[in-house]
Amino acid sequence: MAYSDKVIDHYENPRNVGSLDKGDESVGTGVVGAPACGDVMKLQIKVEGGVITDAKFKTYGCGSAIASSSLVTEWVKGMKIEDAMEIKNSQIAEELSLPPVKIHCSVLAEDAIKAAIVDYQKKHGGA
C-alpha cells in the first residue's frame, strides 16, 4: 500500500515522542487500544490554565497509527481542553489522507486525546 507524504513525514520524523510524569497533577494520560488488536496508543497532555501546553505520545501500531498520534500531539498544543475535546477522527484521516482500512487508526488517536483529557479532569474533580 502506498502511504501519503504526510504519513511518511510523521512516521519518519514523529513529533513529540516521549512521556510526561503521569503522577503530575497537571498531566492527563490516555492509553487506548490493545496489543492483541495490534495497536496501543498512549497520549499525554500537560494543562496549564485550561490550555494544553505540552503533549507527548507513544504508539505501538502501524505507520498510520503513529502518524495519527504524532499529528494530534502537534494540533493540541496551545489548544483549550474544550477545543481539543472536539477533535474528530475524520479531520485526522483527512489531513493524513488515510485510506478506508486505516480509518480506525485515526479513531484511536481521537479516543486517546479524549481519554487524556478525561484523566486530567478526573484529577481535578471534574467529569
Binding site: 487500544g33 496501543v40 498512549k42 507513544k58 505501538y60 480506525h104
Partner: peptide, 20 residues
C-alpha cells in the same frame, strides 16, 4: 508504549486493555 511498560516492570497481561 508497550516497551516502556515492560521496561518499567509492568506485566502486559495484567492490564485491562480496551479491545476494540
Amino acid at each position: 508504549p508497550l516497551w516502556e511498560m515492560v521496561q518499567e516492570g509492568i506485566d502486559l497481561n495484567s492490564i485491562q486493555w480496551t479491545a476494540h
